[in-house]
Every structure is written in C-alpha cells, then in structure tokens.
Amino acid sequence: MAETEGESLESWLNKATNPSNRQEDWEYIIGFCDQINKELEGPQIAVRLLAHKIQSPQEWEAVQALTVLEACMKNCGRRFHNEVGKFRFLNELIKVVSPKYLGDRVSEKVKATVIELLYSWTLALPEEAKIKDAYHMLKRQGIVQLDPAVPMDRTLIPSPPPRPKNP
C-alpha cells in the first residue's frame, strides 16, 4: 500500500505524469483527483499544475497530464469544471495547439488530444460557455478544421440520477 499521508497535489501529479512511468499509473491519477476533492482550493491549484505539465516538451509527460485532466473532469465534479471553463485555463490549452504560441513545438498526438477534449466538453458541458467560445475561436483560426470523432468514453455524459425506489 502506498504511503499517502502528507501527499500534495503537486507530488501526486509529479508521480502521475512522471516520464519514466512505463504506462499510465491510475493509483496516482486517482490519488490526484481525490486530493483535489479534499482541498478547498484544489481545482484552482490543480488546473495551474496541469497546464504546466500539458505544455511539457516531453510528449509522454504531456500525454499523461491530459489523461489526468480527463480523469479529473470525470471525478472532480462541478468545482473542477468551473475552473476548466475559465479562459485562464482554456488559454493554456489554446497555446498548445496554436502555431502562434507552442503549436509548432508540440507533437500532433498531444494537439489532437487537446482538440478532442475541448470538443467533447462543448458537447458534455454546454453550460460552460467559454469552452465553446475557445473551441469556436480555434475553428475560426483554421486550427480546427473538422470536429474530431469523440470516443464514447470521452463524452463525459453523466450517468442518470438513481431512480427513486418504489415502495
């Protein structure tokens, strides 16, 4: 059993995105999600840390960070969605795909994943208007030419609420 006492968001994320991981390590990914849910300012701190990792020049570190981001969107609820739905964070993703910023130095795989995630959130979180604004801006710029095919597990559609029990 891993020692979890005293772990910070940063230390969980460093482990979850460690370039020497041979594969995605879900113990650390879920540990990071749980830590976000425990901390008052978890989502604010987490998106800042994630943005930094997603912009890593090491593809594997960035890919793992995007997996963590997706896991957080599924497991950290509305507080986390609200932070992702701010231009402050969305701009960091835009930088990754835009040739005016980091786009020329980022792998096609990372850019495609960022675009898939953004598009999937426009479908799953229509109330987060800034996500749509950001995505449509990328389309206007020609950075996104066609909506990607989003795998079903990316759609973030919440499961229906439990039915009330009939007596």
Binding site: F87, R88, L90, K100, Y101, D133, A134, M137
Partner: peptide, 15 residues
C-alpha cells in the same frame, strides 16, 4: 465582488 472582478479579468487569448 472577488468573483466579479475575476470574471472581468478572464479573457480569451489574443490570436
């Protein structure tokens, strides 16, 4: 108030 000013400062990246 904090949220309002944060909203005002939150802009899409210039392209």
């Amino acid at each position: 108030l904090g949220e309002e000013s944060e909203e005002r400062d939150d802009h899409l990246l210039p392209m």
